[in-house]
């Protein structure tokens, strides 16, 4: 059995503010991500995507309902569930290599697994930058380093919160391919928050579309195309406009279409 199934069971998350007001960030999310699956979360800003990832990571507690990794209840953060933020949050006082080694050292397995560090630096294309401090990296390089830092623990699940949001379009497409390649090699379940519909279709097995206030799952779309996918494939574009319509960004397409 491939490990890495996430079961989200009727999860409700309410934030209480200082002034006694409440924000219902998630109201009754029920969903299962199968082991080895790539699932994207997409939805308007503030609808609770990050909150859901943080719950899976164990950084927040649900007010009701529960989350499970391979049947085991999630109660706190763990190296089994890696998280990559939109901001790479590399530790500025450590070199890139030391940043990537952090998880191994924290789990006291560094001695046996030292060679992994080189391997993962290589995997994300930073093998010549091990001795460099984070402030010397470009945005894309920093994000790749933070990906390597999360991957080196070989988590069963990798949670990605808009990891490519801050990157330019070309770096972004390169990174998408990189993520796919890593997933193929490492067989990790991946759950990714994104605002980019193309990115979601290009990467995912399924796309979860969320609605705001109170946050719920609106629709789950299967992406049945084989990989590698072509971004201009007609089915790709049809699915894209489907999703944009659900999100109310479809616009109007008059017949006949514009002449280019």
């Amino acid at each position: 059995m491939v490990a890495g199934q996430i079961r989200i069971e009727d999860v409700v998350k309410i934030f209480r503010h200082h002034d006694g007001q409440e924000t219902r960030a998630l109201s009754g999310i029920d969903f299962t991500v199968e082991a080895g699956e790539f699932v994207s979360l997409i939805g308007p800003s503030g609808c609770g995507k990050s909150t859901l990832l943080r719950l899976i990571a164990g950084l927040e507690e649900a007010n009701s309902g529960a989350l499970y990794l391979d049947g085991q209840k999630i109660t706190r953060p763990d190296a089994q569930r890696g998280l990559v933020f939109q901001n790479p949050y590399l530790f500025p006082w450590l070199t890139v290599q030391a940043n990537v080694s952090f998880g191994l050292k924290a789990r006291k397995v560094y001695r046996e697994k030292k060679d992994e560090v080189k391997k993962f630096l290589h995997l994300v294309g930073l093998k010549d930058f091990g001795q460099v401090y984070p402030h010397q990296l470009s945005g894309g390089m920093a994000q790749r380093a933070s990906l390597a830092r999360a991957l080196i623990n070989r988590p069963r699940v990798l949670l990605l919160d808009e990891p490519l949001g801050a990157l330019d379009a070309f770096t972004r497409m390169n990174m998408q391919d990189e993520i796919l390649r890593i997933r193929q090699e490492e067989q990790i379940t991946m759950i990714m928050v994104t605002h980019d519909v193309d990115e979601a279709i290009y990467l995912s097995d399924r796309i979860v579309i969320m609605t705001p206030g109170p946050a719920k799952i609106e629709t789950v779309k299967k992406v049945p195309f084989p990989r590698p996918r072509a971004r201009s494939y007609p089915d790709f574009l049809r699915l894209r406009s489907d999703i944009l319509n659900i999100l109310n960004f479809g616009g109007h397409l008059e017949e006949p279409p514009y002449q280019i």
């Binding site: 953060p77 763990d78 949050y89 530790f91």
Partner: peptide, 29 residues
Amino acid sequence: VQNAFFEVASTLGAGRSYQIFHVGIPAAM
């Protein structure tokens, strides 16, 4: 120290004391 650094450390498998000595103190240097 930004809380995010502690969160990152905890998702990488760092326990409480490891976070104190390898995140909190170096970041506060």
